[in-house]
Design a protein around this nucleic acid. Structure first.
Lengths: 293, 293
DNA sequence: ATTTTTCTGTAATCTTTGTTTCAGCCCGAT
DNA sequence: ATCGGGCTGAAACAAAGATTACAGAAAAAT
């Protein structure tokens, strides 16, 4: 389908054919990057100090049906100009067959990531990173049925970077004990995407009641925990699948890990060195059970 | 003169207070950089699949007089945004756009995914999906220190989709027992990225010796297990961080889940229904332990 | 100076819009 | 099972919108 000409270009091309007041109008449109054309015809007429019929006539001269038609075109042009993807994942698809699962998946994921980031408040991100990097705050991570592995991933890294990190067991029966440790200085990091789990909300509420700070990772539909959360990260999760995708969520997690690591690089370097040592040591332990060498 | 808050920021701030359909609307606005909000209220309502009163209610919640007032604000915001073609990352952010952690991270991740897919053999992907979708094959998942949560994520889904899926414990001491179950028809799915772990290779070798098929997820440098693997997926993992990123790996996992699910949708539907039932039932179990409701 | 042509805005019209009211609905609590 | 509270959209309405027809004004041609 041959793409319609840009309104901007139309204005330039037809400029010669325009009458005085039409030109006045065109100038106003061009000055404002067409945006003034998104007002009502009345307001636009006032801005340009012309009458409304003049506007209709210009629209017709440009080849449109009427003002509404012109405005639709302008809106479409503006929308195109506004969207400049932060990072363009290749949606053309890496493989020729556009309908392969992978291809569709990547398109969806690329979309999810872009949209998630558009919605993200970098200031909030930094604030949370600050909290997570503070070794005086105890961190407790909690995930739902599916998101538990995301929590675990986060936990794996945080635990190496800093002290005082706990992964709450998936069995709700042990949560009450865990609550004992959650007090004023504590931070509860919860993952809750649909289908939202009652138990998570309950625990978050209780933790909140004890003065804990709540960091929530959820989807855009909004977990009920949002109400109690001090910080909320919302990720897009929809993909062409029966399941939701936690990739955008994982991106946030990894970025947070990187940021927290960066903020504590000096102190965590020692921890990591110590860990490497212990891993080395553990070869000795392991040698008894199969991995001989 | 104190500048009015940006509509975009208002949407983010108030998100927690919004109802379901208001959120749907907010999502449409955010996705389109607010531009959809420049249509008439009727058209906008159709785009977002909500009613016009919902739009008015959202406008009021954001602190505007009504839709027209909101639209004026949007038009003004859009006009501002059009003037600066390249201010993409949040101006509220503390640092100039390009060097925020998120920005650099996303660039790297986008790169990783693209390059991972370039290297990927779709035919191999389909072959593996076929194997994983075959209920007669027993599946055993195994991850390393970091990748264990990726294995767990994969496991969570596979287990729901089909029978005969096992997640091998992280403790090497119990692996010998697990090996008893791994025989000719079995499939071992191993995750091994740097730093490659000796134990994983050992287990893979042994499993292979017993006739198991090995599916390996690794990075492009190549785990030593590649030698023994029947299928290898190589993902790019480098990001501006002290840690590697498993996002590209996760993408493959999720795509595989989707594909396997699609191939077994008929039979897995029953499983999922049964699961939903059991989740419903479990409310009864749960009611006794603190989550009194 | 008169006529013709072209341009422009006023006023009347018909359409669409934005707002309000209200009843049904779903969901959670009792 | 029943009740209440909040959410949602259908319908009715007043307000504003866009369009048309027409007449006065300005410029060009004779």
């Amino acid at each position: 389908m041959g793409r319609r000409k840009l309104v901007r270009d139309l204005l330039r091309e037809k400029q010669a054919d325009l009458t005085a007041s039409e030109r006045k109008l065109a100038a106003v449109l061009q000055d404002g990057q067409l945006v003034p054309g998104l007002q009502s015809i009345t307001k636009l007429a006032e801005s340009a100090e012309v009458s409304t019929p003049t506007i209709v006539r210009l629209a017709r001269k440009l080849g449109f049906d009427g003002f509404n038609d012109l405005q639709d075109a302008i809106r479409s042009d503006v929308a195109d100009a506004m969207k400049q993807p932060l990072a363009k994942l290749d949606p053309g698809g890496p493989m020729p067959g556009g309908d392969h699962m992978l291809s569709r998946f990547v398109t969806a994921v690329s979309d999810n990531i872009n949209r998630t980031l558009e919605r993200l408040d970098t200031a909030a991100f930094d604030r949370v990173a600050g909290v997570l990097a503070d070794p005086s705050r105890r961190l407790h991570l909690l995930g739902g049925r599916i998101t538990r592995s995301n929590a675990a991933y986060f936990f794996n890294h945080l635990q190496i970077i800093r002290p005082g990190v706990t992964l709450l067991d998936s069995a709700p029966s042990v949560w009450p004990q865990a609550l004992l440790d959650i007090d004023g200085g504590a931070v509860l990091i919860v993952f809750d995407i649909r289908r939202y789990e009652k138990g998570l909300e309950k625990l978050a509420t209780l933790a909140r009641g004890q003065g804990a700070e709540i960091v929530l990772f959820t989807d855009i539909w909004g977990s009920p925990i949002e109400r109690h959360a001090d910080h909320t990260f919302r990720a897009m999760v929809e993909v062409p699948s029966a399941w939701d995708s936690t990739l955008a969520l994982n991106l946030l997690i990894e970025a947070l890990i990187a940021e927290v690591q960066a903020r504590r690089s000096d102190s965590s370097a020692q921890r990591i060195a110590a860990l490497e040592d212990m891993i080395g040591e553990s070869r000795i332990f392991r040698s008894g059970q199969g991995a001989a060498d």
